[in-house]
């Protein structure tokens, strides 16, 4: 996995069927990348539900949450609508897993992203990373603690 203190590589992925999001356009935001194996699978859905429910807390820390998996933009659209997600799901679909590989969180055996959380600060440096066992939903306590620490350091 990419290391703390490294510059985050820029990337651009589809967030909706006709719209892309790039890291560089989120210049004044902390960015939380939530890599997960697959839409619709039970653990991921629970994990993303907690991230969704925590949106007020992420707002407090000027943090934008981006989910990323290798599913296609159409699959993401349907999944997000079903679960009422308010944050974008990015399609690391073509070339498959390219952005996951950039951050070194791609599982070559399964052909899916690993379950990882990466916090990128406003200067686009890697501030905090967490790799979770694939079957375990990590919750949001670790990332919220990291954001709290980041905010205190800056102020």
């Amino acid at each position: 996995m990419i290391k703390r203190g490294e510059q985050a590589p820029d990337f651009e992925l589809f967030a909706t069927p006709d719209q892309k999001i790039s890291l560089s356009e989120l210049a004044d935001r902390n960015v939380v990348l939530v890599f997960y194996p697959a839409d619709w699978s039970p653990v991921c859905s629970d994990e993303l539900t907690i991230f969704n429910q925590a949106h007020k807390l992420f707002d407090k820390y000027d943090a934008t949450v981006l989910g990323i998996s290798v599913d296609s933009r159409w699959c993401h659209m349907s999944f997000a609508k079903d679960r009422n997600y308010h944050f974008p799901l990015l399609a690391d679909f073509h070339p498959k897993g390219a952005v996951s590989k950039l951050f070194d969180v791609y599982d070559e055996v399964e052909g899916e992203s690993k379950r990882a959380i990466i916090l990128i600060d406003k200067n686009k440096k890697i501030n905090w990373t967490y790799l979770s066992p694939t079957a375990i939903n990590p919750g949001v306590d670790g990332i919220l603690e990291a954001l709290e620490k980041l905010t205190n350091e800056k102020s």
Partner: peptide
């Protein structure tokens, strides 16, 4: 209560804590 749960590592419902430690 929602916030304290999130900060404590609640990752779905129900989540249980025994004597303060998260029970997986």
């Amino acid at each position: 209560s929602l916030e304290s749960g999130m900060l404590s590592g609640v990752n779905g419902t129900p989540s249980f804590f025994i004597n303060g430690g998260k029970f997986n």
